[in-house]
Amino acid sequence: LFHARFEQAGLVDAIKDLIQDSDFHCRDSGIALRNMDNSQVAVVVILLEAGGFLPYHCDRRLNLGISLTSLTKIVHYAGDEATLALKANDNPDTFNLVLECLQTGCIIKYDIKSRDIDQEHLEIPKTDYAATITIPSAEFQRICRNLSQLLESVANEASEERIKFSSSGDIGSGSATLRHNSDLTGPIALTISLKYLVNFSKATALSYSVTLSLSSEVPQLVEYKVESGFARFYFAPQIGE
């Protein structure tokens, strides 16, 4: 039997534009998701430890293939305040999804067929980054959305005290600078697609702060801590000139 109740259903909204469907690996320790977007440029890794759910019960390993497109529609109409419960019995072909709106007490139940998802197995090695910078998530989202209105990619430059997001395109250029208190092993400069950063920043509601881990020649990491877990977004570095 598997039963998990989750109070941050907005997490689904944060990843739906990157991943259309995914296996959810359910273990006694918690739920994990690890998947790559179709263009192979971004990877989403989510870990929700059992302690973050009330209740959580999983007595055997279970992989649920879930359409995030469908899940998003279900969660969207329930609103941000809804809790989401997943239930599965010994038949892994279907699972139950229960949405509960705390304000009104309304309960919506679905029986969903588990999808058979042909998913790459990803091994994510431990990486030492040149810069690991934590900034307010709302500021990060504001910067990404603002610059992306006119421009397509952003160059990140970080020094001891400041991180600078600068961008240029046909219409001209723009930049945003933020103070930070993080440690750097040295100054760093790299370029990232704003379209993806805007996507990653949809996780803003999950956490007050976001941590950017940057190095020139390895995937960049954008991480949001959630209660008893995290949502991590990796982005491929640019290659060639």
């Binding site: 090695p125 290659i239 000139e241």
Partner: peptide
């Protein structure tokens, strides 16, 4: 021209 690398080359199954 500069391009975006694939994450499979970093995270693909060993």
């Amino acid at each position: 021209p500069a391009g975006q690398g694939s994450l499979l080359s970093y995270f693909g199954q060993k």
